[in-house]
Design a protein around this nucleic acid. Structure first.
Length: 1039
RNA sequence: GGGCUUGUAGCUCAGGUGGUUAGAGCGCUACACUGAUAAUGUAGAGGUCCGUGGUUCGAGUCCACGCAGGCCCA
């Protein structure tokens, strides 16, 4: 474009402006509001009125007509020109960019870039059930920022999203549907049931996929991984069989949280605690004998033989399963004699009982005992010596079922906080009980059926239900209580309201029930030759935690370690239908401890895997499948097929195998660079993946564990529907757009719990607007930028070189921050750069040059060069955080059919720009500038000036070096004044100064001369040029 | 009840090894500009650093005990 054209009325800038402002009348804008003439009170200032009058003369011609005597210079300026809207309209516009990315295939095109080191963030699979909540959005957004930033830093950052598809919640949904139709789950074919579960999961995968994509998350959405894919099911089974072959797998028996209503065991995560009113009973156990204690140096009083030991329990139905009474070696016990009772007391005067001293009062009160004597203390050694009778011993109709001895056993879990100080122990119905049973070899009982009824052949109580199918209490408790009362073994009874486990689905109460389970041994040396980091799963896990994995934040290391140090064996089996079966066979008639109990045959395993690959895990349930698999190898009749399914944590713990190891977009060693999940996953996916990896690969399947906290409401309280303080991602997107939600993520410290709410989101949107306007100004200022305008850095003014220095500095900050997954720091630095260095300093100063300088002016060319560099960096640096907006900005400048900022890398760092000495000089310059602006602010408040261009202050500087520094730069330009004098030496009295900037003082003055009608600077030479109302620079620019 | 963890301006966050009047940005208020204009600039107000004890010449920073949250267990 020729120079003359730029300034003619045919100037495209002008045309564009006219088009955008059809009602615009030249001159009307500046005159409509009128210019106030202000009184001038400062004695050393020239009369402002004179200047104003002159201005008025210039402005005064008939304003109602376009027939002016003076040109409208606005049309000759390079004002920012852009169609980039100030208001984003993200909710409406974001889907358009999503479509574009899909159309131009951004993810696939990034994969085509060659020569890049892979960077693998392995996705922890969300459960395919329900719409996304804020936690999902947070998690996927952080992941996306990690993936995008590493891609743009030069990696091949692939991201394969996944879903966890098996498990109870889906199973339950299908069961619910069955119930609604009046069907019984048990009457339905397992394969048909599983297929319904599969369809359910598929549907939610589809829904969640769209919801995740809407957040702007880039990844292999068309080819995600699902734990229910046939290959995945085959691999999960194969991985399980590694545990079968390496010796970790064993069958044990364990009381588990059991839902009689759902006839299934529940994982801990599936249990919720609600208040529940239970029967409480105090049951005296008679002493039947005592071992000889003289050898122990203790003396057993004969008085104990006639006494009874009282236990307390809230689960009367467990009494028939009692096998021991536990006591503590650290509690003080005593022998008491009942002397007086209330009318309706079950206790009788004269009877003697043993109780914890601290609890005796309470117990007697409950038993309505009105008088009692403490006879003497009872020592732990005495207690240990006692053998008790089951309260049902000799009961009529009991057929001798309960005629066994009940030992007294010491237990660390016994306290005297509540109860009697003695703990009724039923190893099949409680965890402490089970542990005590393991330690002392107590027999397990099998009295309770899956539906919560006593086994039919249990004397007296057979078939009675503990919990009814509708979740209400059955008759079992009351029957037991009656039987106790009838046999004189009920000391007291009552009711208590307490926190009790319930099913998270059916909300029905749970019981602890002994069930056969499959375990992975954590401390058994494995026979797999993968001992580089230890022989057992626990050793390998601890070694991984300490040596192989980096934790962000570091506290995760302790957290995972302490869990690994103390965790028991892994219970792999669940009594469910929707999952990958434990693909193994046990020899009929063999006991778990027999060497040939489990069928261990690689050929069998291979057949299973092949079948699963072809048809999925459903084949396991096909009639005759056992025969097919064992045919020609083993006698199918000699083996029993296992129909438990694997803990879903085993599924997700195995994802590294079927995603990282097996997929073309995986990695050769099958180890991920990053696992990134919420802090709850220390107990979950990090944990199960660690156990699984240590059992199958000998180490953790990851190198980095990054955790984020939970999202709370604005007050820091947990979100809950009942409190009405939830924030749903879909609604945030609808109101503000995904980029605002992403910005919220970037502004928060995700390593701890974050808060979100209306006020916080509003603040986030405010920040966004500020940033958006900075970019808009860049776009406007770069209109028609041409490569030929570029100026080498060395030829640029100091101000430009300072900005370049900041860019060099930021390059390091941004790359380092992204490498550390610290988006908050990256964003904070970039945002503050935009506001502090750009908007309020650089842009403000350079507006004059950008608007008014001739196109060829080196100053303007340097500014535009820097702005172009700024543009490339800011837009790419922010792209991982604000992918939609940065795409909009990028395309506004570089419109194209198939381009995208997300195909770019961060521009290479320019080391030569880094100039700390210059930065130091600018620190001083800016400090002095603050004094100048401060001084002008006083003038403005006193109505002596309006714009800073009205002034031409004098700056008094004590230090000559500082004066020299200021003289070396166009300090008037930097302060946006029409003139400025720097004086060395003492300032006159009354000069403006700031406490924190000693040695600098400013005396404000009105700029002498006339106001250039084009650039608005007030200069003495205005009026002496061809264009009468302009200054020399503008006169020349006008040509 | 146990393990881990958080608490600095209205909001989001900085504040190595304890050391002068606790910082930034946003928001707010006022002023200015009206050629970034539902924008921009300048200035200002705003903090019992969760509380209480303690160590110390000196504590937001160290210790103890609490309070209020959060995650995971019991």
């Amino acid at each position: 474009m020729k120079r003359a054209e730029r300034f003619s009325i045919a100037n495209p800038h002008v045309q564009a402006f006219r088009a955008a402002h059809p009602n615009y009348q030249p001159g009307a804008l500046s005159s409509a509001q009128g210019r106030r003439i202000r009184a001038v009170s400062h004695p050393c200032l020239p009369p402002l009125a004179r200047i104003r009058n002159r201005l008025m003369c210039a402005d005064t011609p008939d304003l109602t007509t376009t027939d002016k005597t003076e040109p409208e210079y606005k049309d000759t300026l390079f004002l920012p020109r852009t169609g980039f809207p100030m208001r984003a309209g993200l909710p409406q516009r974001e889907p358009g960019w999503l479509e574009r990315w899909e159309r131009i295939g951004v993810y696939d095109r990034l994969r085509e870039k060659t020569g890049r080191a892979p960077f693998i963030l392995h996705d922890g699979p969300p459960y395919a059930n329900g719409h996304l909540h804020i936690g999902h959005a947070l998690n996927k957004t952080i992941k996306d920022m990690v993936v995008r930033s590493h891609q743009m830093m030069g990696h091949d950052a692939r991201y394969v999203p996944g879903w966890d598809c098996h498990g109870l919640p889906i199973e339950w949904k299908i069961e619910e549907q069955y119930r609604a139709k009046g069907l019984d789950k048990d009457a339905v074919d397992t394969i048909a049931f599983r297929q319904e579960c599969r369809r359910f999961a598929e549907e939610w995968v589809g829904i969640q996929r769209e919801e995740f994509k809407r957040l702007g998350v880039i990844g292999a959405w068309e080819n995600p991984y699902l734990t229910m894919a046939f290959h995945a099911e085959a691999v999960i089974a194969d991985e399980f069989m590694k545990f079968l072959m390496n010796g970790a797998l064993y069958r044990g028996s364990k009381p588990v949280m059991w839902s009689p209503v759902e006839k299934t065991a529940l994982a801990e995560a599936e249990v919720e605690y609600h208040d529940h009113t239970s029967h409480t009973i105090w049951v005296p156990f008679a002493v039947v004998s005592a071992s000889d204690f003289e050898n122990n140096g203790a003396c057993l009083g004969a008085d104990l033989l006639s006494a009874r030991v009282v236990i307390w329990t809230t689960t009367p139905w467990t009494i028939p399963q009692n096998r021991a009474v536990a006591f503590s070696e650290t509690i003080a016990y005593a022998l008491y004699c009942v002397t007086e009772t209330a009318e309706n007391s079950a206790a009788k005067p004269g009877e003697t009982v043993i109780l914890a001293e601290k609890l005796a009062d309470e117990v007697f009160r409950a038993a309505k005992v009105t008088g009692y004597d403490k006879l003497r203390s009872v020592s732990p050694d005495e207690l240990r010596a006692l053998t008790l009778a089951h309260p049902f011993r000799g009961i009529e109709g009991g057929s001798g079922e309960w005629d066994y001895d009940v030992p007294m056993l010491p237990g660390e879990h016994v306290t005297d906080d509540a109860g009697t100080g003695f703990v009724h122990t039923a190893p099949s119905h409680g965890d402490d009980d089970y542990q005590l049973g393991l330690k002392f070899g107590l027999p397990m009982t099998y009295n309770v059926e899956p539906d919560g009824t006593y086994r039919a052949d249990l004397p007296l109580l057979g078939g009675q239900a503990i919990i009814l199918p509708n979740g209400k209490e059955g008759p079992a408790n009351v029957s037991v209580i009656k039987a106790l009362a009838a046999t004189g073994t009920l000391f007291a009874k009552g009711k208590v309201k307490h926190s009790y486990p319930h099913s998270w689905r059916s909300k029905a109460p749970l019981i602890f029930r002994n069930t056969p389970q499959w375990f992975a041994a954590i401390d058994r040396p494995l026979d797999d030759g993968l001992d580089a980091h230890g022989a057992t799963i626990r050793e390998r896990a601890l070694a991984s935690i300490d040596e192989l994995v980096k934790f962000t934040p570091v506290s995760g290391q302790n957290r995972l370690r302490s869990m690994m140090q103390t965790r028991p064996d892994w219970v792999l089996s669940r009594q469910r239908a929707w999952g990958v079966p434990l693909t193994c066979f046990v020899r009929k008639g063999a006991k778990p401890e027999d060497v040939d109990f489990l069928l261990r045959d690689e050929q069998v395993n291979a057949r299973i895997v092949r079948a699963f690959e072809a048809e999925g895990a459903d084949v396991w349930y096909r009639p005759g499948f056992k025969g097919e698999i064992l045919a020609g190898l083993h006698d199918p009749e000699a083996y029993e097929q296992i129909f438990d399914v694997l803990d879903v944590w085993f599924d997700s713990g195995s994802t590294h195998a079927f995603v990282l190891r097996d997929r073309a977009d995986g990695v050769p060693d099958g180890i991920a660079d990053v696992y990134l999940e919420g802090t709850d996953q220390h107990r979950g996916w990090f944990h199960s993946s660690m156990l699984q990896g240590c059992g199958t690969m000998g180490r953790a399947p990851y190198r980095n564990v990054v955790t984020h906290g939970f999202t709370l409401d604005e007050k820091g309280m947990k979100m809950s529907k009942s409190l009405g303080n939830t924030v749903v991602p879909a609604e945030v997107i609808k109101q503000y757009g995904a980029d605002i939600l992403r910005l919220w993520v970037a502004q928060a410290d995700y390593s701890v719990d974050q808060r979100i709410g209306p006020e916080i989101l509003k603040g986030t949107a405010d920040s966004y607007r500020r940033l958006r306007n900075t970019l808009r100004f860049l776009l406007g200022s770069l209109a028609d930028f041409d490569e030929s305008e570029r100026v080498p850095a060395a030829e640029m003014p100091e101000l430009e070189r300072f900005i370049l220095h900041r860019l060099a500095e930021l390059d390091g900050i941004v790359r380092d921050g992204y490498a550390r997954f610290d988006f908050q720091h990256v964003f904070q630095q970039l945002f503050q750069f935009c506001t502090v260095d750009l908007s309020s300093l650089y842009f403000d100063i350079r507006k004059d040059s950008l608007y008014c300088d001739a196109a060829t002016d080196p100053r303007r060319r340097a500014a535009r060069t820097v702005m172009d560099l700024l543009f490339h960096r800011l837009v790419t640096w922010l792209a991982p955080i604000l992918p939609f907006t940065m795409e909009e900005v990028w395309l506004d400048r570089f419109p194209s059919e198939n381009g995208s900022v997300h195909l770019e890398d961060f521009p290479r760092a320019e080391g030569a720009w880094f100039d700390p000495e210059l930065a130091l000089r600018w620190e001083t310059i800016r400090r002095v500038r603050r004094v100048v602006t401060g001084a002008l602010e006083v003038e403005r408040r006193e109505k002596r000036i309006g714009a800073s261009l009205d002034a031409a202050p004098t700056v008094y500087v004590a230090e000559p070096e500082t004066a020299a520094l200021l003289a070396s730069v166009p300090f008037d330009e930097i302060c946006i004044t029409s003139g400025l004098a720097v004086e060395t030496g003492a300032a006159p009295d009354g000069a403006f100064a700031l406490d924190d900037t000693p040695g600098v003082a400013v005396v404000p003055r009105l700029a002498p001369g006339g106001k250039c009608a084009r650039c608005w600077r007030i200069l003495p030479d205005v009026g002496t040029h061809a264009h009468a109302a302009t200054c020399a620079r503008c006169d020349e620019a006008l040509g």
